[in-house]
Design a protein around this nucleic acid. Structure first.
Lengths: 203, 203
DNA sequence: GTAATCTATGGCAGTCCATGACAGATGACA
DNA sequence: TGTCATCTGTCATGGACTGCCATAGATTAC
């Protein structure tokens, strides 16, 4: 990795951290892009070259999460019941968070606090999750050999799994002191979800 | 109802219809609030007195939908399993759409086309649905006598039901010629969902 | 090591969304 | 009809975002 790329990654994280701190300190809405840019000493114009929008700042982890889910799906046996595969994908995201560096964990907990204070941002996160859901549905449909535009069963399977992820992470929740608690909560939610369905409902 | 209120309702619908037509004609992003206001001959400032934002235009039906669901929940017996109550609530929304006036139906079908062309707007709709979901969870938790902030089972029950609604309506779907097809699709989705769960999973 | 090249950045001008403040217009009601 | 409450338009302002062009910095070739 060249100097250029390393520098970019560093700037990206600097923007993110500065923004999260400012948001928590003085509120999301009352923090301007100019302020964020100023605090990391870049021009406002450059900010928009790193993040497509101010809102985009609170969605940084979604790309990685989606990637992990897609990889997991690809690695599961083709004849596995689709909901089972989806549950594995959700669990993989939880494990990845569990393994995250202290810096990433800190970012994530800051984000959680931010979401608790700004319902609108929860909405953004949910909306982004819905986009992921569509793409995962395409993958699952392909595996099952059905047409994604007409097969509602596939959409339900993916939607139920993503709901589980959402309940585990996006729902308002009492103060989360550390990552472990968040992941444990997720595990518990997954277990509840798995026990909810009729065996063989998704084949 | 006084002249004043009737006039307001008329203006509101005029804005909505003008906006939907403009959006479909020239795209959501390239339609400005000024244009919408101009086409119904009100000032741009007045537009924002009828709709809190441009985005808000595509969410007009959510208020009514949420109201119907809340009413349905209140009308269900207190000892009914919560997921069953939620399914009734979702079905009530579908029936209400089925009964809608031709004008409302036309608006709805226009909106569906708009959603198909603008994934971002689907996100908005989903986000708005998530807000409803939170409020319904409060209601369901109260009925079951559990604490909504900690009981993940309640959130799952509501989330699964709302997922069903979403799969029926928000998912991209082949051209919808009329309301009947949309409602029929919803019914089918509801049936699939009902058969997915283990009997008694939600008690 | 230097020149040529590619890319990241900054500055500037402009568009659009959204909101507050105030004044004028219009329906409600005694 | 006159008073009151509410709706509406005008003006001014701020903040998010984009296109364009010039410059500074990193990369590559020689």
């Amino acid at each position: 990795m060249g100097l250029r790329e390393r520098k970019k990654e560093k700037t990206r994280l600097a923007i993110l951290d500065a923004a999260l701190d400012l948001f928590l300190e003085q509120g999301y809405d009352s923090t301007t892009v100019d302020q964020i840019a100023g605090s990391v000493e870049i021009s406002p114009r450059t900010f928009f070259r790193y993040f497509t929008s101010k809102d985009d700042l609170v969605l940084w982890y979604h790309d990685q999460g989606e990637e992990i889910m897609q990889e997991t799906l690809r690695s599961r046996p083709a004849d596995e019941p689709p909901f089972t595969s989806m549950i594995h994908a959700v669990r993989a995201v939880a494990h990845d968070m569990d393994d995250s560096t202290p810096e990433d964990a800190a970012r994530f907990l800051k984000l959680r606090r931010l979401l608790d204070e700004n319902p609108r941002l929860v909405g953004l996160s949910v909306a982004r999750g819905a986009a992921t859901e569509q793409r995962l549905a395409v993958e699952i449909a392909a595996r099952s050999g059905v047409d994604v535009t007409t097969d509602q069963r596939t959409h339900l399977i993916v939607a139920f799994a993503m709901s589980t992820l959402r309940v585990g992470f996006d729902c308002p929740q009492p103060d989360v002191p550390d990552m472990r608690i968040l992941v444990a909560r997720m595990e518990k939610t997954l277990e509840l979800a798995q026990n909810a369905f009729r065996p063989g409902w998704d084949v």
